[in-house]
Write a protein that binds this DNA or RNA. Structure first.
Lengths: 324, 324
DNA sequence: TTGAAAGCGCTAACAG
DNA sequence: CTGTTAGCGCTTTCAA
């Protein structure tokens, strides 16, 4: 933006001090309503916009928050990003997004690059060790999404109970050989879901069959389908819908009918009715998670007697066509 | 970031003037190589990072570019975003992303909010009238993606030829009733693809069947499938893969076999082998588009004898399972 | 090749 | 309720 008038010009034009103009923006309560209005009117007329950088220089706050995700193209993240931005917008904040490719080294780099420019960090599905995260959180306001580290504010989108329900459903349906296909091994979600599945299996006296889809891609799912078939499982739970989708594709190639020959339950509910049969899954309130994360960030000040919060959002089992 | 040393502290520590430190970053050519190295070493040691805001205040450049997209969750955009960020990173720039929900009013708002904070704007699939875009481009460096406005730099990901090829393929296969399902009516891509399809149809002496999926969603595609069936079409081209996917689902519900009863060609190639049968489509080099857009932005200065550029990236037809 | 000095546009005490 | 003043951390002439 070129040729924007400065606060001094606007003040001169109005015959007031620059600080008065400043206060009209930063603390209007200090001014007479009429003064504020006069300032705003003149600002609109001259096209005055406060210079963010000057402001940031003096206040030390940029009005920008950083949001770090492993993969912007994974359907899990767009709703989070979207609603984080919406929430930020309402608070007059902007959001920088960084994509780490699910790589811890790149995550470190991105955090380093972002940190000096932002007032706070939201890190989703971090692949970093707890220690690193703790260090970061000490330096600047940090909120984690789907990572459960003590002393750091975090919002957890959890599928624990819904997963157990899903297994109950399978068991009730007479399934005894149930497989779980894991996702990215370093992700918290994977650990959490794995634990949940294991416990639920045990509670039914079942030995689970545990398989891998480490990159968490569709192709990974296709590949895993061979192992599922080999294992003799009649029901399979996937780490997420993307993998579930790959499994479905793999099963179809092998001539298996879903759900007659094999039942499938996904997680995250990012695909819903777009598969055939429509994919049973676990809906997560990702939008809410994004929103809550930025709100939590606002209430997070490192050092200053922080009230660190742990917010857990439970998902819900949605039974559709793939579970019979 | 708290407690970062300033340029003055670093200078003192080194026994040089602050301006020397400054030059080590902004114009190292002015300094002895050895001096530059000394500065950098000390900076690394003390953890000095130049304050972006102070810098921006004086230079008037923030090192941030704004990227505006209609829908971050549409698989068309993540690759663009991703690679725009990568390219920006290489140039030492950051990217602000804004989502407009495909709404022109919101687009205006977002541009207004972003403008004062960024050095330039990349607007993807803009829904604004040409006039508005021209005005914006006069005020600040602007690059358009998939919008063809004179005097503004733009990168166009085009499916024109590939679409014609697709129709040739259908005609060769004996199809005479071919439908095209349109996407968002205000989008440039839709216009462009519609024109291309119409011309190709005409060149074969065919009357096309033109249907709508205005929101461009999966559900829209499902809905459109009824009309396709009704029209008696034996081959259908969809504005994009998402709609094509919806069509496939709709056809299946109606018991039609793909490609035996009906052939489908998508566009954008965002789904590829994840459908069954795997979706024939038109691959677009979205990654390149994102990268080129930021490079073009660097070479775009409004007023200053701008070399406005029009870069067109042609897509390629990929025949898979849905076209027989 | 480096230093000194003058601000960039704004906010935040401190007065009044 | 409003004005005065002193910088925030950096870049950029201008000298040396």
């Amino acid at each position: 933006m070129r040729n924007v008038p400065t606060i001094v010009q606007l003040a001169k034009r109005l015959g007031v001090a620059p600080s008065t103009v400043s206060r009209a923006y930063t603390n209007p309560g200090l001014l007479r309503t009429e003064t504020v209005q006069r300032v705003m009117a003149a600002a609109a007329e001259l096209g005055y916009v406060p210079n963010n950088h000057a402001r940031a220089l003096i206040t030390g706050k940029s009005g920008v928050i950083g949001l770090i995700v492993p993969d912007i193209a994974n359907p899990f993240f767009p709703p989070i990003i979207r609603h984080a931005q919406l929430a930020a917008e309402e608070l007059g904040l902007s959001v920088f997004i960084a994509d780490t490719d699910g790589d811890a080294d790149r995550e470190v780099t991105m955090i380093g690059r972002l940190s000096p420019q932002v007032d706070g960090l939201i890190i989703a599905a971090s692949r970093l060790p707890e220690k690193s995260l703790t260090t970061i959180a000490q330096r600047m306001p940090t909120v984690l999404i789907n990572r459960d580290v003590d002393k750091i504010s975090r919002v957890l989108v959890s599928a624990t109970e819904a997963l157990a329900e899903g297994i109950n459903h399978f068991v009730r349906g007479g399934h005894t050989r149930i497989a779980y296909v894991e996702g990215p091994p370093k992700s918290w979600s994977n650990m959490q879901r794995l634990t949940s599945v294991t416990q639920a299996m045990n509670s039914h006296g079942l030995d689970g069959i545990f398989l891998q889809a480490p990159a968490g891609t569709f192709t990974d799912g296709v590949d895993a389908s061979a192992m599922v078939v080999e294992s003799g499982a009649t029901a399979v739970i996937a780490f997420d819908d993307v993998i579930a989708h790959g499994l479905m594709s793999g099963f179809r190639e092998r001539g298996l009918r879903i759900p007659d020959d094999i039942c499938i339950l996904g997680c995250d509910d990012t695909l819903a009715i777009t598969t055939f049969p429509s994919l049973s899954s676990i809906t997560l309130d990702l939008a809410k998670a994004g929103r809550i994360a930025v709100e939590a960030l606002r209430n997070t000040q490192p050092k200053r007697g922080v009230i660190e919060k742990r917010i857990e959002l439970e998902g819900n089992l949605v039974l559709r066509g793939t579970t019979g």
